[in-house]
Each structure stands twice: as C-alpha cells, then as structure tokens.
C-alpha cells in the first residue's frame, strides 16, 4: 500500500500487525467482528422487530431472550435489527467525517497561506461551537430520518479531523518525499492523493475509528431525545421507546440495559482497537515493550517504575 517512509510501520499492514500482536487490539477486533456479523446476518433470523409477539413487559425468558417491550415486541429482535442501521450510520458517518476532514485539513495544510488561514478559521469555529446542541438544532428543523441524522453528525463532527489532518499534512509538507514530488513537477492533487494521503493512511484509519465512536454515541443520544425517526428500529430509538414507555417506573430494565451495553461494547471495541494500535505504533511504548522482552529473556522481573527511554 505505502512505502515505509516513517521509521514506524504505517498503513493497513500496521493495523493487521497490531491486531495480531496486541491483545487489546485483537479483543477489539473480535468484538467488532461479532457485531458486524450480527448486523449483517442477524436480522434474517430474528424476524420482524415490530411484530407484536406477546404480552407486554415480560421479563427475559426462554421464549424471549431479552423479554418484551411495553408494546409486546421482542427486545432481542429489536436489538439485533437495530444494530444494522446504528452501525451503518456510525461507520458511514465515521468515514464521511474523515473524508470531509481530510479534504479541508489536507488542503489547508498543503497549500498554506491564505487558504490555510481561512480553512483553519472555519474548522476552529466549528470546533468551538458545542456539537450536540448544534446537532439538536439542525435535527429539529429537518424531517427526521437516518439521512438527517447522518447529515447532522457529519456537519458537527468533521472539524476535529480537519484539525488533526492539517497538522499532520504540515509535518509531511517539508519531508523529502513530498519535496521530491514537487520538484519533479507533479500536480498538487496528485501529490496529495498519491503521496500524502497514503503516508497518513494509518492515521486516517485511526481517525475513522475515533469518528465512528463519536458518530455512534451522538446518534444514539439524538435518537434518545426523539430526534430520529422513531418508527424505525435502531439502538437510539430503542432507548427512546424504553424511556417513553416508562421503563424505570415499570421496572423493565431489560428494555434499556441490553441496548446500552451493546452501544458500550461497540465503543469499547473501537477504543481497544485504537489504543492497541497506538501501543504498537507509538515508538516510545514499543521500545518499552522491547525492553521488557529483553528483561524477561534475561530472567529479570520488569520493575514497576517507568524505564527511562529517550524519545
């Protein structure tokens, strides 16, 4: 994919490596894979999540693994079916947010000067305006639905990526491989697409993961407030209905606990993946790792205090 231009592994291979090498990353990847499978094939097995299958507010049982809602629908079916839209929006928005952020951030960092000043101003303003309230205001005016949600989340979420990617572009701007490309007279677009973006691919992926965490959390929050399309089954609307149907009052913990757990597990898996990756690619942490391996090889116990590693 990309040349090993950094002294650290970059790009997709680094991820594959991280997942194989790091326990955290492998747990994260496995969890994520599980939910992806659930989203893809689960709905075929659970049937219609809106169907009224039994007496309302049944506690979990063999017939209904996670009980029934206040309307007599199967909570498990709703959880499984909700996974699909929620994850789709989450990853879709995560991807889009990074694309938009890369477009703005890389442009600003690469061209510098007035372009940079203007674009930086724009994303800094967007960064400092609180995201969720802005998302609520926009969502309140638009017809509710997954597309609206996605749009709102992209609008409120791209700025952070732009900022990070601009900084990274600035760092690459003066590297040899970019300078060389400029000297050979390649077009700016080509340099950005062929040289800079591939060099940043591992960072981009980390950004996508981070943005997906944001998108899932914010989406669930907005839907919980009733700003989604409440007639669609998603994690957020499941929680909305649980609250709307007085889950607390009726003691129906099973209507909100599993969904929250699912949201958390996906978020946790993504964080594990990111931090596992960080451990692998962060030179300092990696050197420490080597140090401990060395200690163990020579039969010593690693000390608790931080070894001194020159960065």
């Amino acid at each position: 994919m990309s040349d090993p231009r950094d002294n650290v592994r970059t790009g997709w291979s680094a991820w594959a490596w991280a997942i194989r090498r790091d326990r955290k990353a492998s747990i994260g990847a496995a969890l994520l894979l599980f939910f992806a499978a659930l989203a893809l094939i689960g709905p075929w097995f659970t049937g219609d999540p809106d169907a009224l299958v039994g007496v309302p507010l049944q506690a979990p049982s063999a017939a209904h693994w996670l009980g029934t809602t206040a309307q007599g629908q199967d909570v498990f079916a709703q959880l499984v079916v909700g996974t699909r839209i929620s994850l789709a929006i989450g990853f879709g928005v995560g991807l889009f947010v990074v694309l938009l952020g890369a477009l703005v951030g890389v442009t600003a960092g690469y061209f510098g000067g007035k372009v940079d000043a203007l674009l930086s101003l724009v994303f800094n303003v967007f960064l400092v305006i609180p995201g969720l309230p802005l998302a609520i205001v926009i969502a309140a005016y638009l017809p509710s639905g997954p597309l609206t949600l996605a749009l709102v989340l992209v609008v409120t979420g791209w700025a952070w990526n732009a900022r990070v990617l601009r900084a990274q572009t600035l760092a690459y701007r003066n590297r040899d491989f970019v300078s060389a490309a400029i000297v050979t007279g390649e077009s700016s677009a080509r340099i950005i697409v062929r040289e800079i973006l591939p060099a940043m691919s591992s960072l981009l992926l980390a950004q996508v993961i981070g943005s997906t965490i944001y998108a899932i959390g914010a989406q669930v929050g907005l839907e919980f407030l009733g700003l989604g399309d409440v007639s669609r089954v998603t994690w957020g609307t499941n929680l909305y209905w649980a609250q709307n149907d007085s889950a607390l009052l009726t003691g129906a913990w099973w209507t909100f606990a599993p969904t929250g757990l699912a949201v958390a597990l996906v978020g946790f898996a993504l964080s594990l993946l990111n931090s596992g990756f960080d451990e692998i690619t962060n030179p300092r942490l990696e050197m420490e790792r080597a140090w401990r391996r060395e200690l163990r090889r020579t039969g010593q116990v690693p000390g608790e205090s931080t070894p001194v590693v020159r960065g």
Binding site: L239, A247, G260, A264, S271, S275
Partner: peptide, 30 residues
Amino acid sequence: AWWRRGWIDTWLPATFTLLGAFPYFWLAMV
C-alpha cells in the same frame, strides 16, 4: 504513569474506557 504496570495502570484505564463507551444518559438511567 508513575506506577506503570501497577494495579492502577492495569485496571483503571480499561475500566474507565469501558465506562466512557456507555452513553452518559444511559449510565444516568441505570
């Protein structure tokens, strides 16, 4: 950071990452 690999370092970051993955409002509901 001071007691790298101590119990604080082993357990707390993971625990709080997991807690942080829950939507606040859900923690609040629970």
